[in-house]
Design a protein around this nucleic acid. Structure first.
Lengths: 235, 235
DNA sequence: TGTTGACCAGATTTCATAATTGGTCACGAG
DNA sequence: CTCGTGACCAATTATGAAATCTGGTCAACA
């Protein structure tokens, strides 16, 4: 069984809405299941008809938000294929975390957890954007270099640096966001993109393939959000 | 007054030795000034004849260690000028933190402090390696690109990423150090080095200038370690 | 003059008690 | 019978007061 009858998904969304709102307002720690249930206008036990644990509930929040963001990105891609150039969309993704309060709150919580112990719960939501299939595709179409050692690791480490350096060095605070994005873009362009940019035909082809991949990738993730029976990731 | 009479410096070094040893053994938090004084075979008050606060004492420990490392690096440079290529010495510097227990302990403490609040105390020790003069020189001799926006910030953020990503993602643990160094080297080479490597004449010239700069830079830092009267950085 | 350790205020740890909360499930409504 | 609920429980976490520790000072001493 992957889904239940009637308005179940609608209710799930109302719960996720409530969770998201309280998350932004109070932070992960201070949000209780009771709060969420109350704001959603249901009983506490009902929440557990949808997700096994508080953590899974918030993973669903994160995943829903991520999917929505990816879909936004796909739209932009349809409008402007050049957006697929890593030095364009990676800084854009970087920026987005600052823009979407839910993502911001969750990434802060992720850091807090990582600091102490197992944070992999929040981690696999990143799998969506960082899937092997996506990297392969980008490399194949000449949008990513094929000579980057440990591509996934290298790219993640680099992005993480820009993310975390914010809070580490006072110097970073003085720089405005624009300058930071430029810096990140520079590193991405030179370390991860081939010297030769792809032709616009290649780019268009890559875009349509990216769209296809994500339209293939997203549904199982979306199902996972709402399906009760689950222990780990889809696909 | 910059220095005191007699065996004062020798005693300072014994205190720093004691502090370093206890630091490695117990970690910053658990080391008390009493412990240090006892291990150094002196009274507690005497420690305060050398440094105003516990923090300044450990800054001195860090600075002494850093200077020693830089001098080691200068030696290597004399032997092999190619070591000045950023994609060589930056991963090497990265590695060194794992090798020297004192640096390791201090960088962990730095992260802990940064996590919470003002960590700039530990930060300015990095000024030694990251001084404007050094960057200028490297750029001037074609060892660093001249088109990197916010060079200091960008490079720091990148290196920080590789440093911190260790503890954030389980994937990073599986990769061995060699692979990580390769990744960092790749990013540095392509994002921060010019496409054309310098000629060996240029390189040699840069090396001798680097040596000159550091031999000029180090003494005031060394003085700072031992001089009681101080409020902030030398130079 | 150079050194020290007793001393102090403030920070940290301890420890017991109280309050909260994630998760369950027997029950009741429909 | 199905679905939803909130009282309930174990376990975690918050609280706060008392005890301990420790960075830093300074009067006394060698």
């Amino acid at each position: 069984m992957t889904e239940r009858a009637g308005q179940t998904v609608g209710r799930a969304d109302r719960i996720l809405d409530a969770a998201a709102e309280l998350l932004v307002r109070l932070g992960y720690r201070k949000v209780t299941i009771d709060d969420i249930a109350q704001l959603a206008g249901i009983g506490k036990g009902t929440v557990y008809l949808h997700w096994r644990t508080k953590q899974q509930l918030f993973e669903a929040v994160l995943l829903r938000e991520s999917i929505s963001y990816v879909e936004e990105l796909l739209d932009e891609l349809r409008r402007d294929p050049a957006m697929l150039l890593p030095h364009r969309f990676i800084p854009a993704s970087f920026l987005i975390v600052d823009r979407r309060p839910v993502l911001r709150a969750l990434s802060e919580e992720y850091l807090r957890q990582a600091q102490s112990r197992s944070a992999d719960a929040f981690l696999h939501s990143q799998e969506l954007l960082a899937s092997e299939r996506f990297y392969d595709l980008m490399t194949r179409h000449g949008l990513l270099r094929d000579d980057v050692p440990n591509l996934a690791y290298t790219l993640s480490a680099t992005m993480t640096g820009f993310h975390l350096y914010q809070d580490l060095d006072p110097m970073a605070v003085q720089l405005d966001m624009r300058a930071k994005l430029d810096s990140l873009a520079h590193v991405v362009r030179h370390a991860f993109e081939p010297a030769e940019p792809p032709t616009s035909e290649e780019l268009a082809k890559a875009v349509s393939e990216v769209i296809a991949v994500f339209e293939d990738l997203i549904p199982p993730y979306r199902t996972w959000i709402y399906a009760y029976e689950r222990t780990h990731e889809p696909g």
